Amino acid sequence: MTKQIQDQLQRKLQLKTTPRRIVSLVPSQTELLVDLGLEANIVGVTKFCVHPVHLKKTKAIVGGTKQIHIDKIRSLNPDIILCNKEENTKEIVEACAQICNTHVSDIFTIEDSLELIHQYGTLFNKNEDAQKIVNHIKKETDDFKTFIQKKPTLKVAYFIWKNPWMVAANNTFINYLLELNHLKNVYETQNRYPEIELHNTAINKEVDVVLLSTEPFPFNHSHKKEVQAFYPNAKVVIADGEMFSWYGSRLTKAFAYFKNLRLNLEAFQAL
């Protein structure tokens, strides 16, 4: 009996059997598959699928998230290919859909993430495992909301790239998590991931926190001094980009990280 499932773009997938051979083109979704107990079913991943660390040594590498080797994917004879609207291009999704069923996620909120986990539970007959992860994330989210409830709102700039300088703005999962952290994005009037110029402007002086993400650009402590000059009153922090942009099972770990981040910021504010 054929089972029909919709992905997060409301595209219909027709499944005659549970997919057994999986190609994942999204690092955070690859991690989710493993946490659902599906590592043995993964046949292809991207070069950015770094969790768990051993995975790239045991699975075929089919390219990155923006550029793939479509012939290599085809040769793996997958039953399903997993994509994401932001991570992968429309052309990639269309090319993959010519090979087999292709599921596309679209994530802006925690609820979107929980929906995706449930969809994978249904897709791969892992409903019980999916529900456990969902319950864990819900508990962590509720606990964090209680923790952050009376914390003051701080103004933040979240950098994702250098040369050109780019920040996370509105209509992104990152911005959603910033809001959850009571961090008001000073670039929220802009859309997605705009390029900005580093200038000593009035708004810069109002920024309380600058977060330099470890991905997609690998910001490290050597970049802090350069940025600090333009945000004289801010605490410049290297932020774990996976915690702010990976969804799926990574969210079971993210809120403990957010608590520690807030406590560190409070210590700075007290100085």
Score class of each variant (00 low, 15 high):
Lys66Thr: 07
His103Val: 07
Ile203Asp: 11
Lys56Thr: 09
Val167Thr: 11
Gln149Pro: 00
Asn260Lys: 14
Glu115Ser: 13
Lys138Val: 06
His199Pro: 02
Glu39Met: 10
Val237Gln: 06
Glu115Gly: 11
Thr46Gln: 11
Pro27Ala: 12
Pro52Ser: 03
Glu128Ile: 07
His103Arg: 04
Leu212Gln: 05
Gln4Gly: 00
Asp71Cys: 03
Glu140Arg: 10
Lys225Ala: 15
Pro218Cys: 11
Leu211Gln: 03
Ala169Ser: 10
Leu263Ser: 02
Gly241Tyr: 11
Ile133Cys: 05
Glu188Asp: 12
Phe255Val: 04
Pro52Met: 05
Pro216Glu: 07
Pro52Leu: 07
Ile107Tyr: 04
Gly241Ile: 09
Lys253Leu: 14
Phe159Arg: 04
Thr252Glu: 13
Ala202Cys: 02
Asn135Met: 06
Val45Ser: 09
Ala267Cys: 04
Gln14Thr: 12
Lys259Ile: 04
Ile73Thr: 04
Lys151Ile: 02
Phe255Tyr: 15
Asn191Cys: 04
Leu212Ser: 10
His136Gln: 12
Ser24Tyr: 07
Asn233Ile: 02
Glu86Asn: 04
Ile68Asp: 08
Asn163Ile: 07
Lys139Arg: 10
Lys132His: 04
Lys90Met: 12
Leu15Glu: 01
Val227Phe: 12
Leu271Ile: 11
Asp112Gly: 12
Gln190Ser: 12
Phe268Gly: 02
Thr89His: 10
Asn171Ser: 14
Trp165Asp: 04
Pro78Gly: 04
Ala229Asn: 09
Ser113Pro: 03
Lys235Met: 08
Ser75Tyr: 01
Val93His: 09
Thr141Ser: 11
Asn135Ser: 15
Asn191Ser: 15
Thr30Val: 12
Ile70Tyr: 13
Ile174Lys: 02
Asp143Gln: 11
Ile22Ala: 10
Thr122Asn: 13
His51Thr: 12
Leu180Ser: 07
Phe230Asp: 13
Phe219Ser: 05
Val156Arg: 04
Cys100Ile: 08
Asn171Val: 05
Thr201Val: 05
His118Ala: 15
Glu94Cys: 01
Val62Met: 11
Ala97Pro: 00
Lys12Ile: 14
Gln149Arg: 14
Lys259Arg: 15
Val167Trp: 03
Ala168Trp: 00
Glu31Thr: 08
Glu206Ser: 14
Leu82Asp: 05
Ala234Lys: 06
Ala168Val: 08
Thr109Pro: 06
His221Trp: 00
Asp240Glu: 14
